[in-house]
Amino acid sequence: MSGFARRAAAEFTGTAFLVMAVVGSGVMASRLSPDDVGLQLLQNSLATGGALVALILALQPVSASFNPVVTLVERALGVLDTRTAAVLIAAQFGGGLAGTVVANLMFGLPAADFSTHERTGAGLWLSEVVATIGLLLIVFGTVRSGRAERVAFAVGGYITAAYWFTSSTSFANPAVTIARTVTDSFAGIAPSSAPAFILAQLLGGAAGFFLVRLLYPIPASAAIVADRKVLS
Rank of each mutant, 00 (worst) to 15 (best):
T15A: 02
A103V: 09
L124Y: 10
I89F: 05
T13E: 12
L203G: 01
K229A: 15
R75G: 07
L97A: 08
L80D: 03
G49D: 04
S65D: 14
T142N: 03
I189F: 05
T166L: 03
L55F: 09
L202E: 15
T160E: 09
G38P: 11
R147N: 11
T169P: 05
N173A: 04
A207F: 10
V79A: 03
P68L: 00
D184F: 00
V62M: 06
F209T: 13
G204W: 05
S221C: 12
A90L: 14
S221I: 15
F12I: 12
Q92K: 04
G208C: 02
V23T: 01
G3R: 14
P195D: 07
A162I: 13
A8D: 07
A154D: 10
G96W: 02
N104F: 03
A51D: 13
R31L: 12
F186A: 02
A58K: 02
V22T: 01
R213H: 03
L59A: 03
I56D: 01
A98P: 02
E149A: 08
F186I: 01
G26P: 00
V130K: 04
L39C: 11
S2H: 06
V70S: 09
A220P: 07
R150W: 15
Q92T: 09
V225L: 15
G49F: 03
A111C: 04
L57D: 12
N173V: 02
T15R: 01
I56A: 10
S115H: 07
H117Q: 15
Q201D: 12
V230R: 13
L72F: 10
I218V: 15
R7T: 01
S127F: 01
A98D: 05
F17S: 10
A98G: 06
Y216V: 13
W125I: 14
G94M: 08
G96M: 06
S127M: 02
G95N: 06
S168N: 06
T116I: 14
G95W: 10
A220L: 13
S232A: 15
A29I: 02
V230W: 13
L199W: 01
A154F: 08
T48V: 09
A154Y: 05
T71N: 05
G96N: 06
G205T: 02
A194F: 07
A223W: 09
S45L: 11
F140M: 10
S65A: 14
M1D: 11
R144Q: 07
Q40F: 07
G14F: 02
P110F: 00
Q60M: 13
